[in-house]
Structures are given as structure tokens and as C-alpha cells.
Design a protein around this nucleic acid. Sequence first.
DNA 1: ATCCCTCGAGTTCA
DNA 2: CTCGAGGGAT
Length: 672
Amino acid sequence: MNIQEATQRHLELCELLHRHNHLYHSLDRPEISDSRYDALFRELLELEARYPRLRTETSPSRRVGAAPVAKFEPVAHSVPMLSLENAGSLEELREFDARIKRALGRRENLTYVCEPKMDGVAVELVYRGGRFSLGSTRGDGTTGENITDNLRTIAQIPLRLQPPAPELLEVRGEVYMELENFRLLNERRTEEGETVFANPRNATAGSLRQLDSKLSARRPLCIFCYGIGRMEGEAPDSHAEMLGHLQSLGLRVNAPMTLTRDSVEGVWEYFRQLEARRDSLPFEIDGMVVKVDSRALQQELGEKSRTPRWAVALKFPPRQAVTRVEDIRMQVGRTGAITPVAHLSPVEVGGVMVSRASLHNWDEIERLGVRIGDRVVVERAGDVIPDLVRVLLEERTGDERELPAPQSCPACGSPVSRLEGEVVPRCQGLSCPARLKEGIKHFASRRAMDIEGLGDRYVDQMLALNLVQSVADLYKLSREDLFQFERMGERLADKLLAAIGQSRSRPLERLLFALGIRHVGEHVAKILARHFGSLEALSEATGEELCALHEIGPQVAQSLTGFFASARNKEILRSLKESGIDPESDTRISSDLLAGRTFVFTGTLSRLSRQEAQSRVEALGGRASNSVSKRTGFVVAGQDAGSKLTKARELGVTVLSEEEFLRRISELENLS
DNA sequence: ATCCCTCGAGTTCA
DNA sequence: CTCGAGGGAT
């Protein structure tokens, strides 16, 4: 066979394999036997082995996996992957419906689409020119990880879309594992002496996180698609049509279980039906998603920061288990908050062993009436965090012990006080070892100063050896100090010292967050860093100056002035400065040309991302907000701008096109 | 005064 | 993830 013939045959094979894959996985209508398919597939592999140049990006041979990667690269989602608000009762569903009708100003019912909520892992697939070109995890919704190689191994994900495919299509879906396959996988792992996965979702997540996609290829993963991000060309008018469109492109959607309903009662009825069917399904679902069907209305309703206003997740009641409270212990957080934690006889809840559950505070203990020794019902809230639901009073033997609220801190013995209006009792001891420990852990944490390797164990030893009295002392540690630690060799010590050293150059906003000032989290820290530019400037600010800033109120201001007034804190800051930690904010507001002006961006911006636009406004002292009111200065309308544009016109707010906005903002940038 | 939205803080397990 | 609470809009 010469090259030309080989190329020809390769093309034929690709077409055949794509077609039969589509028939089998997407249409559920195979035309050839599995063994015939395998034969074609083997022929393709042999051909490509002989002529490696034929191995294209979307060749079906890619299904077997690619070379391992060292780590997953971050991928920014061009349209954020939002999460959903939850509802657990007909009541809450009615509230959702009422809220929507209020927002839209209408009385008549509207059409909702109901689809099962798969218990799996959310992913995004990007198709360019009809070819699968990028696949990623949801991550935090803004940025996920590039798992293209792993996703390519899933036979249900088409490598090419059925024509006519849009030039660009971003599809969202849920990757999951069928129960039977999950069982078989665990069986095999047991035989091979490996640990078993707790549940199908963990197995799916684990499979997608394999750095070697050849391993992912051996995992039986499935996918259902349920949404889109960006899409070139005309998008369908309704969600249901959109699903149909995805299906016609060869993407797998859960059509038989997706249907529309014209009233909340109808929605609820279907939810109850799904719940009844839940245990007989071949895969796990954890609820049902309800969406406003009309895409125009979806647009009009818009989003909050993390969730769309036009969808809600109805959750099945979480799985519960019964166990015994062995003990209730006190934990002291970095702010001094004293949290009671129930230590439980280990019990399996929804596939995971649970041995502890936070009781949050004393009001909660009283509400539940829980005593040490009680038999209790435990569930996992949102299927993640263990939560104690109720006490089985009828099983009391009389040997249970009540627990008094603490009068003094369990760690340092100093008095505990509960401030007016607050639920949480706090330790007021300034040198409380528990507070210091948590404070250092927070300081070193990833989102703060990001000191890699400085975890629980080392912090404990530093404190035990009395090497650190405050976070500032971290930067005074010597190799000799570290050598006193258990199991600490030269290499480890140098690594830790290097990590501490590296953290010196963290930006101001991180340092501010790391200091653990009450009411100063990441967001507030960023505002302060941008506005003041240095610790010194901030420390000199008066309460009034602080309150004048947007999103800073009296509570936050008082907490800040209080922090900087303390002699001990002054000493810590001086010491940090001495160690070379005194960052200037690099994103300092460069001018106040836009001070007091609020911008709202709506529709799709084509020349810059929304984030970019917002940060440019903020750099000039302006603010970016999400909702239009009469106090909004400008509305910047991109393509397909919806209700916000309408509202802006009604209120007489100035509307700018993207071009006008860009021209004006660059003029201002040049001025400053 | 009231509603809505975000933020901060505390939490589990693999 | 889920509370409670701070802050802004109305």
C-alpha cells in the first residue's frame, strides 16, 4: 500500500468509525457488531503505526489516550460555569417561581424544563470547526483544568460534531459512571489490591484526574450534555430546543428523562416521580434541575454572582445514618470562636465514613438537645459536610451527659465572652495558643501568603518549641531552629525556609488577608490594597475615611482601626517590615477620574472580557456592578444585551456601546 | 425598616 | 457547603 492509498483508507476508516460511534453511543442504533467495530479500529491503529503522519487530532485512535502530562494546565471559561441554588420542598419551589414572576412582572405561568441532576463531574467541551479541541473541569467556575486528553478517551464524547456544526460551540455536561460499571471497577480494584472508590462520583472524578490518559481510557465513563457556553450563530429560542440541537450534533443528552411542565405543581409531580424511580436507575442522580425554558426570559432574568436566577436544583433528601455521639469537644478558631464538635462512632453515610460533625454553636446544641452518649441521625448536607440532624430521644438510657457552655477557653483558660447579638462565644485571650496556631495556619494558607509545606505538624512543633510568638517570627526561623523538629533533615529544612522566603514577595492584598483582621477577607483586602497601596497608609486611615469606601461599613472600619491601634499588632507589623515584608500594591488605583461612577456590563463583549473591562474601570476609581438602578452611571451594552439595556433606557441611564466604552476608557487611561 | 446579595468564617473527607 | 452578618439599594 502506498501513501496515497493509505491516506485514502485512513480517511475511510475515520469516517466509518466516527459514524458507527455516533450510531452506537448517540443514537443507540448500532449498525455493525462490536467485533466488526473493533476490527476497523485495529486496522486504523495499525495504519497509523505505519504512517504516524495520519494521526490527526480527531482521529478515533485518540480514544486510547495520549502521553502522560506532568500537571493539568488552567483553562479560563469564557462564560463562567455557574452553580445552582437549591430547593428542597414544594414551598421553596413556589418561592422560586414567585420570585421569577415578580422579576419578570408577569402573572401567567411559564414553561419549565425538568432534567435529572446527574451525580457526577461537570465539564466543558469546546468544539472549533466541529472538532473537539478543548475539554476542562468546572473548577471554581471561572477557571478549570485542561483534561482534554482524558475526555477524548470517552467514547460518548464525539471527536467531530455531525454537520452542519457551528464554527464555535462550548458545551457543558456531566461526566458520570453507571452503577454496574462502578461495581465492576471496584471489584477489579479489590482483586488488584487497590483501594476502592467510595461512590461513582469519586470514581469519576478520580478517573478524570489521571495524569496518564491511557488510564482514563480504561475507565467506563459516560456523559450527558445539558447546556452551552458560547455558541457561534443562531442559538435556539428555548432550552428544550437547544438540547435537541445538541443531540442532532451528535452530543449525548438525557432526552427520555427531560421534559417540560407548565406549572410548579407539574414540576413537583415529576420530581416525586423521579424520586420514586431513583433507585431503579442505572446511574446515581441527586435531584432534578428546573430551568426556565425560554432563553429570552433566561437572559432577562440574568445571574447573581454565582448562580443563575432562572434555574434551581431540587434536591432529594440527603442519605442519613444513625450513630452515637462519643464525645463533644471544643475547637478554638483563629478568631477565638469556640466551636463544639461532635465526635461520633464512625458510620457510613452515602458511601463515606463520617466520624465528626460540627455542632456550630451552643444555640444549636440546645436546639437539638444533644448530649454525650446520645444516638443521633447524621446526614451529609449537600452530600458533603456531615450534619447532625436530630437526637433519637426514645433511645435515651439515662446515662447521657449534658455539656455546659464553656466559661473559659479550653486551650488557654482565659475567659470566654459572647458579644451582644452574636451567636458564637469567643476566647478573648490574645496569646491563646490555639488562636496563634490557627492564625499561623491561616497566614500560611494557599490563598493568603501561600507558604507551601507549612502545615499542621510543623506549626505544632514551632509552638511546642516556643520558636514563634507571632506570624512575624516565621521569617526569623533559622536552619538550626528547624533541625530541632522531629524527622527534619537538611533538605526538608531548606525547602521550608525557601518557601517561607518566597512568601515575602506576596502582594499587599494577600498580606492583608493573611493578617486575619476580623471582617477582612479576600474581597475586602483587595479593596483596601487598591485604595491605600501600602500598610502604612492603611494604618493611618481614620474610621471616617474607611467608611467612605464602597463596601466598607462601620463594622469593618472599627475592626481595622482597632487592629492598627493595638501595640502588639504594631510590633508584629514592625517586625514584618524589618524582615522585608512591606508590599506596595501594584494594582493601586491610578486615578480617581471615575470615582463614584458605577458601570454595568451587559450582553457579550467582543473585544475584551468582562473581567478585563471591570478591572479597567476599577483602576480608574470606578465601580462595576451587576444590576441597573437609577444610580448606575453607565451601561455598556455588548451583543444581545437583554433586560438590563431595557431598564437602562427606562431609567434614562447613559448607554455606551463597547466601542464607545473602549474609546473613552483609553482616553481616561492616557490622562492619568 | 426591609430585602437582596455577597462576604467571612468555620467545617469534612479522600 | 452553609450559616450569620455586613453593606447597599429601595
